[in-house]
Design a protein around this nucleic acid. Structure first.
Lengths: 138, 138
DNA sequence: ATCCTTATTGAAAATATTTATCAATAAGAT
DNA sequence: ATCTTATTGATAAATATTTTCAATAAGGAT
């Protein structure tokens, strides 16, 4: 289900700024902060306000169409989310980020932790860090 | 190795503010932001500046004595890190946080992802969310 | 205990980030 | 084309973080 449909479903409207933010995120392979998205929009000669970027990101987040990337230092980056449960794999050097699927793999850990702590686990955040292929060469 | 030793090793000094921040973190079971730590210090009638809290957290982070907790919304919380590799388990409701050990459990996932992406994985961030025992009752 | 060197601090100011307000605009149904 | 109202952007306000710098104090030397 794409943005247009989700908006209709809630009686909300498709607007140019929303299209722009989404488009910028689609073109990115690195998590972008609100400010950065705003800059890129201006470069495209779009008339848009920073405030709207924040609001749009909030909206996309509610729709689950975007994920926050929590690097150790910068935790303000947003990344377009593919449907389904994914995690991010971030390159330490160039920050290039790819997603990888799979939450089943965690069920072992989750069960052990539930047993040990008494907590009832219902969500998780997993992010891997490393070197992407091209950064491995240099 | 405790703070005193790590400081000596780098020719740095143990000071009252540093002791205070550490002590506040030791007493916490919930991730604390710089501002919150500052407040708690004032409550203790300590003469300390917010700036110093930021600096101390940065220092403790370099020493690996503290970890950032990246909840979906708030990613500015710091939590004392036990030695070794740990992850956080955060209660959605009361934010009470406990650590749990174990990075071996991830090796399966890591290997699969490395194979699939060509990335060389060397670090990770794992956080679980759920309900702590006492919040399950209510 | 006293002196010295210099890491450290706190206050204030400068930046950066995020949220709230509100009149003007424009989406989309009629 | 018109009407209703969700949405926008500018401004301002609120938060959060970093920089600057003179004053302070840790801790080794004496």
């Amino acid at each position: 289900m794409d943005l247009q449909e989700k908006l209709n479903q809630k009686g909300l409207r498709m607007t140019r700024p929303r299209r722009v933010v989404l488009s910028i995120l689609e073109a990115a392979s690195v998590p972008l902060s609100a400010g950065t998205i705003y800059q890129k929009a201006l470069e495209r000669k779009e008339r848009i306000g920073l405030v709207t970027v924040y609001r749009t990101l909030e909206l996309l987040d509610e729709f689950g169409m975007v994920r926050r990337a929590h690097s150790q230092d910068e935790c303000h980056g947003y990344l377009l989310a593919s449907p389904g449960h994914h995690h991010n794999l971030v390159c330490h050097t160039c920050m290039k980020t790819v997603e990888f699927p799979g939450s089943e793999d965690l069920s072992g850990i989750v069960q052990r932790v539930q047993r040990q702590t008494g907590y009832q686990v219902n969500d998780h955040l997993l992010e891997l860090y490393g070197l992407c292929p091209s950064c491995q060469e240099s």
